[in-house]
Design a protein around this nucleic acid. Structure first.
Length: 426
RNA sequence: GGAGACGUGGCUGAGUGGUCGAAGGCACCGCACUCGAAAUGCGGCACAUGGGAAACUGUGUCGGAGGUUCGAAUCCUCCCGUCUCCGCCA
């Protein structure tokens, strides 16, 4: 959510933001409704001022005076109720419009109409050259008893899967590997400063509103009969952690390495990625979540750091990847800027998204009411950021495909060998 | 699932119809003392929003939404949340 004052005073900027993000929101209507809101509020406040002063007079007034005042107040009360009725209607529309206003993308975000317009900004590693036709992760993993899709769908329905044997072990190995990478202090070659946290996936409505997944993303979420939703990323639960809190400035930046199961209905992507474990309803994410001081410079610094962290993991896993800066149309409502890291998938002969790194300024924290006391003694909304550390099972796809051998066995990257207890999956 | 208690500022905690935006404490800020710090003393200090160049000032906010009343932190209803006991389960 943006500050209404900011919207009023920078209407052109917000209008341009909506255009760039391809978001439809009637800003002129918002300004008109806001004017109405202010007018009605002022009128109601005037009446209340009178009510408050009369209320003080009534206490000590003599009977005749008191009766006069009481009559006046009864009439005023009716008038006030009329105003409040109108204001209520106006506020309803105002709020509906406000939650649709997008955050302003950074100047460095390219224009574009879809993810096809994202711009590559970096490339690392070389896609492997095979002297045989590379197999898909489905073929490789099923052959090695790592994955069972048929029985996955039997049990869990469309997009269901079982990871078993080395497939399950590989997942545990990766989680442990990531935890160690982030747990080690920077001096020891680790990422440093992240607190591991296992976050709820079953989450109440407020953190979804706060992170911006509701109301717009409702149809991609599973909802329980008790009104909670299942989170599609650990970000939701972790961001909810400090909701309605005031943080000590000395504690910033706060960095979490959140882990949780994730659930997505994948509504609207029915035809996409129907084979294998690229797009599943139920998966796991290790997510980096950061709260920091409310300056653009700090956000940018943390954003680059989060992105570098993910890159470092991929480099240790020896997976070729590239980084794209997402174009306006491919940004979420609250995102200022986003890098997707896409990892090479040999069977598709292209890079596929495995990480997504974004910052929000105070868009999320304003909704979540996460503040810190600044040096001037004032409470300010913190800035928030997040990036994937590692999402399973998707990451298994490039991992097995890039390391496949002609005989269908899979070599294990050095960094993982001690975790998996072998250098070859066969 | 049953019964009960509770929800107040950054934190803690008083407050049961008007004199309450709210005592006291902690934290924080300023000043004094000090070579400096600690301790101490004095003062300041909720948040949001409207008006105003500013000083200042209007309004709202005591979990949320309604209601009673001229007037609600305080009374009533519903909802949400927390805690305790019992039950159930691991």
């Amino acid at each position: 959510m943006l500050d209404i004052k900011f919207i009023r005073e920078n209407l052109d900027v917000v209008r341009e933001a909506a255009r760039k993000k391809h978001v439809t929101v009637d800003l002129d209507r918002l300004i008109a409704v806001d004017g109405e809101r202010l007018k009605l509020t002022a009128a109601a406040e005037g009446l209340r001022t009178r009510q408050n002063s009369a209320s003080k007079e009534i206490v000590g007034a003599e009977p005749a005076k008191k009766a006069t005042l009481l009559d006046e107040m009864k009439a005023l009360k009716d008038e006030l109720q009329g105003h409040e009725e109108k204001l209520k209607g106006v506020m309803g529309e105002w709020r509906d419009l406000m939650v649709r206003v997008p955050n302003v993308p950074d100047i460095s975000v390219p224009d574009g109409n879809s993810d096809a317009d994202n711009k590559e900004v970096k490339r690392w590693g070389e896609p492997p050259k095979f002297n045989f036709e590379p197999k898909s992760h489905v073929e490789l993993m099923e052959k090695l008893g790592m994955l069972d899709l048929n029985r996955g769908t039997k049990v869990a329905g469309f997009r269901g899967y079982f990871l078993k044997g080395k497939g399950a072990e590989l997942s545990f190995a990766l989680w442990r590997f990531v935890l160690d990478e982030f747990g080690a202090p920077a001096s020891a070659g680790g990422r440093g400063g992240f607190t591991p946290i296992i976050a709820p996936s079953l989450v109440r409505k407020e953190p979804f509103m706060g992170t911006g997944y509701l109301p717009q993303g409702e149809e991609d979420l599973y909802k329980t009969q008790d009104g909670e939703y299942l989170a599609g990323t650990a970000e939701v639960g972790v961001m909810g952690l400090h909701m309605d809190e005031a943080i000590e400035k000395k504690d910033l930046p706060i960095k979490y390495l959140g882990f949780s199961p994730c659930f997505r209905r994948e509504a609207g992507s029915h035809g996409k990625d129907t084979k294998g474990i690229m797009r599943v309803h139920e998966f796991f994410k290790v997510e980096q979540v950061v709260l920091c001081e409310a300056t653009h410079e700090e956000s940018v610094k943390q954003h680059e750091a989060l992105t570098a962290n993910a890159e470092a993991l991929l480099q240790k896993l020896e997976l070729p990847y590239h980084v794209v800066v997402n174009c306006g149309a491919d940004l979420g409502l609250g995102q200022v800027k986003k890098y997707d890291i896409e990892t090479w998938v040999p069977s598709e002969k292209r890079y596929r998204e495995t990480h997504s790194s974004s910052y929000f300024h105070d868009f999320q924290t304003r909704r979540l009411n996460i503040r810190y006391r600044d040096d001037d003694g004032k409470l300010k909304f913190a800035h928030s950021l997040n990036n994937t550390a590692l999402a399973t099972p998707r990451i298994l796809i490039p991992l097995v495909e890039n390391n496949q051998q002609a005989d269908g066995t899979i070599t294990v990257p050095k960094a993982l060998q001690s975790y998996l207890g072998t250098s070859v999956i066969q």
